[in-house]
Design a protein around this nucleic acid. Structure first.
Lengths: 232, 232
DNA sequence: AGTTGTCGTCACGCAAGTGTCACAATCCCA
DNA sequence: TGGGATTGTGACACTTGCGTGACGACAACT
């Protein structure tokens, strides 16, 4: 399971700087897009929907601050985290930058490390995890908050993949899924594994659930699997 | 849960500035105390126990940084949030300020709006937890007042970081946290350390707890850690 | 000066988890 | 009632994640 790399849009008019930042971020596991102007940036945002923006203060045409303000005003992009970049000596503008809606602020020159650190922090805060309630199905309970599965109050030990699989099933009951769909939903889209691998994990999960609950996972011959409380 | 009004101690040697800040804060619903020197500030802290401190960088006698460091070193005041104020151009000292233990950092001139915003943010972070009650979990006791941990009444010696980690766990039991979340909550948002560092501190903590209690800290493989009385 | 204590990082090794295969078991339909 | 298709199951090598000890840096104290 490779972490879904977040996409970062780098907006700066100087190509070497963009490059440098991009290299640093890619080494840290992020995907990068570059834009030299506000127009380019806007296009990228619309098309590729980055997860956050590194925005230079000084830009030809519309200034970075103005752009940030615009983004924050638009409902569609208001949630998009922004980190402002500024050259040293322009620091007076810090307040303006933050008031324009930037989530953080870095002054050049900065170490790649600091950049990655701030980026992580900002992304972390920007990802509000939906409020997750425990799911109980006839004594089988999965608690996403505690990251724990219990069968009649006694804990069940399963691996991460089986956990995700079970979580998916319990939040999508009574419906049959093909192996391909399960790979998409549980493993995450762009990984290639054999479809039969699903069978193996299904088996491991059934085994872990024990006789009391293994029947909840039903085989739909020729199609895939289904999680259901009703007997088939 | 919400106290009527948080009390803020303003430490600055220039009376007009103190006044201005005080007015701004009072309009936002905070109570204010003022101090012109480190000595006055110290007296206020001991007597009136403010909820946080606005601390000017430049002070007659002991500098603000030094004072912050001293406060953070003392167990009784270590939890007290500090926001450093500094005149423009001294920003190189930002790192020093944060390293001295300041929770945030504002450069003059600043808008009242920004001040209040930062203040809110910092206060939100500062232990909102029901105060100073000792927590006991099966013989493992943490007493926030004495700043002490005992296992079956025999004292346990742990470092500050392990203490904060344990305190966080004991006030947030049963729930799984990722390394990133722990870094946010225990280390504080604005520092970057490797995620694996968490592992090391977990180990140090487990070791200190000994065989009787180390099982309370459970590894959630692929996710993070959890403090739980139930077996996994 | 040295000493002590704490912190963050790294490298190594083990153990748990993962994906794939081969073969057995089962189903379904001609 | 076969026989092909589909699924269950155990075993295997490979990968990943975590525990662990050691080390250097730094600050505070002697």
């Amino acid at each position: 399971m490779t972490k879904a790399g977040k996409t970062v849009l780098i907006v700066d008019d100087e190509a070497p700087i963009r490059e440098m930042i991009a290299v640093a971020l890619e080494m840290a596991g992020y995907e990068c897009m570059e834009a030299a102007s506000v127009q380019e940036a806007h296009a990228h945002i619309v098309d590729n929907k980055p997860d956050m923006i590194l925005l230079d203060w000084m830009l030809p045409g519309t200034s970075g601050v103005e752009f940030a303000r615009r983004l924050k005003r638009d409902d569609l992009t208001a949630e998009l985290p922004i980190i402002m970049l500024t050259a040293k000596g322009e620091e007076d503008n810090k307040v303006q930058g933050l008031e324009a809606g930037a989530d953080d602020y870095i002054t050049k020159p900065f170490s790649p490390r600091e950049l990655v650190a701030r980026l992580k922090a900002v992304l972390r805060r920007a990802t509000p995890q939906g409020i997750e309630e425990p799911i109980d199905v006839g004594g089988l309970m999965l608690d996403p908050v505690c990251h724990r599965v219990t069968s009649n109050n006694s804990p069940i030990d399963i691996g991460p993949t089986e956990y995700r699989l079970l979580q998916f099933f319990m939040t999508h009951q009574e419906r049959a899924y093909s192996r391909a769909q399960l790979l998409d939903q549980v493993w995450g889209g762009n990984v290639y594994v054999e479809e039969r691998t699903v069978d193996v994990h299904i088996r491991r999960l059934r085994k872990a659930l024990g006789e009391t609950h293994e029947h909840l996972i039903q085989t739909v011959r020729g199609t895939g699997y289904r999680f259901s409380t009703k007997a088939s």
